[in-house]
């Protein structure tokens, strides 16, 4: 049985960019352990030399002609931006 510690959960939450409380870390530790233990059943299967399926269709390298086409309208694209200044997206400072 795989156990997942609270510290591991907090590390995963950081990778996923999710703020997490101690109580949540505890809850997720239990639930993730249950789900990953359930997933251990896949180890019953010998998959040596089985090619992984990433995609069910026989499609590779779907390309369009290399020709410039108009994109979306800039003003439209700014419509859903909560904070903006001089046509730029505003975010909290990223340097101290």
């Amino acid at each position: 049985m795989a156990n997942i510690s609270k510290e591991e959960v907090k590390h995963v939450a950081h990778l996923a960019r999710l703020a997490i409380t101690d109580e949540e870390a505890e809850m997720f530790a239990g639930q993730l352990a249950a789900i990953t233990n359930f997933a251990e059943q896949l180890n019953e299967l010998d998959t040596t030399n089985v090619v992984p399926t990433t995609h069910v269709l026989p499609l590779v390298n779907v390309l369009r002609e290399d020709k410039a086409v108009p994109g979306l309208d800039r003003e439209k694209m700014m419509k859903n931006v909560r904070e903006q200044e001089a046509g730029q997206v505003k975010v909290p400072s990223i340097l101290d």
Binding site: T47, P52, T53, T54
Partner: peptide
Amino acid sequence: KAQQVRTLIK
């Protein structure tokens, strides 16, 4: 592992 089992299911 899950991607490989996906192949078996397909």
